[in-house]
Nucleic acid binder design. Sequence first.
DNA 1: CTTAAACTGTCGCGAACCTGTCAGTTCAGC
DNA 2: GCTGAACTGACAGGTTCGCGACAGTTTAAG
Lengths: 223, 223
Amino acid sequence: MRLLLVEDTVDVADAIVLSFGHRGDAVDHVASVEEAESALSVQDYDVIILDIGLPDGFGTDILGSLRNRGKPTPVLMLTARSDIEDRVAALDKGADDYLIKPFDLRELHARVRAMIRRQDVDRSGMIEFGDITFDPAGLTVEIKGSPVSLTRREFKVLEILLANRERVVPKDKMLERLYSFNDEDVSLNAVELYIGRLRKKLCESRVAIKTLRGLGYQLVDED
Amino acid sequence: MRLLLVEDTVDVADAIVLSFGHRGDAVDHVASVEEAESALSVQDYDVIILDIGLPDGFGTDILGSLRNRGKPTPVLMLTARSDIEDRVAALDKGADDYLIKPFDLRELHARVRAMIRRQDVDRSGMIEFGDITFDPAGLTVEIKGSPVSLTRREFKVLEILLANRERVVPKDKMLERLYSFNDEDVSLNAVELYIGRLRKKLCESRVAIKTLRGLGYQLVDED
DNA sequence: CTTAAACTGTCGCGAACCTGTCAGTTCAGC
DNA sequence: GCTGAACTGACAGGTTCGCGACAGTTTAAG
């Protein structure tokens, strides 16, 4: 598990880094809003632990910009005992949890675990068509609920067809999408090949790949 | 929203009942484990607020039997400041949150709101998959009930695979989660190595790690 | 503090598999 | 039946994996 710790108190931060490191988690530690923003711009985390009071701003600002960008990453805020207002505001702003300083490390761990658990699998982005279920994030495909194993190219071809379901995809468009411009020299025949291999694997399905001579391929649901 | 309050201290309970009632929520108030069980047997709740210390037992027992019956109802525990052990145990037993007495009512409301918002999947601390039992808190793994000793890295790899069970985890994603960029240059080969070592230790299990060339690894349960 | 044991990660080779070309065959439309 | 397009089996090259051997590091024990 990879987590980002935003905390400017050295000894607290060290203790947290050590304890998670000990468990085998990857901790990136930063001490300011600015550093946090730049870390977040290059890396996705599983959990973010955020101190509210930072030298160059408030942790809640980081939280705000994160949520504005639509990131659902679980966030745990660290806060002083006194400011209840802050804490309530943080929760309503999209924090998933908070902990009052000083806290026990075991408790921090338990809370982080609980957050991870809740987050679980994100099923967004799944495509269903006919009796096919396509999960681009999990790289899996099911026909009538039973899994089908596809290779990388087959998967890509199916993805393109699904993105244009019921519509005709010309062979050359297919090629363009399958291969980045650098490795050009691939013949159109390769597409035919993959269509063929995909058809074999989809034979159990209601969904079929129709050929339209001179035009391209089309994914259809034959009820 | 309908919530169950299990609390034997009269004035605390009254305050909670009043404040939620004021907001238009339906609060059922009971003061013992026994009453709580009977309330839960006839009624489903959106949220349960649970005091740990009750005249005829522990709130955690209610939580346990609830989770055993597979109910995912969000549970917030109320606890005394002193017993950290209890709190950690409660979280690991499947509580979603807790609050230390005495607390501010506004905070209670904020936490309940947060729980409702993130109502989700899978709350019990242990993860079970096929014949594998995985305890992230205790850092232990069992196959068909007998313990297997894993190293830290192996454990981490298994954790990642379990969090994405049935889905394909690309090797580079795996690396990202295993290491933070402080300790940079780890080759992808290391992942293969750990997969190999894990496979050896899982050979007794129904669960297997499938390789999908060019895509990644996938944890599957071969019935 | 020293020593041993276990854990981590690199290297490199052989094996397994994916990919895409070729060439021969089939097929649809005229 | 002709023609171009699409399909398919076989194959070569390249990539990806698995794994044994080995060295550096951490952890535990004496």
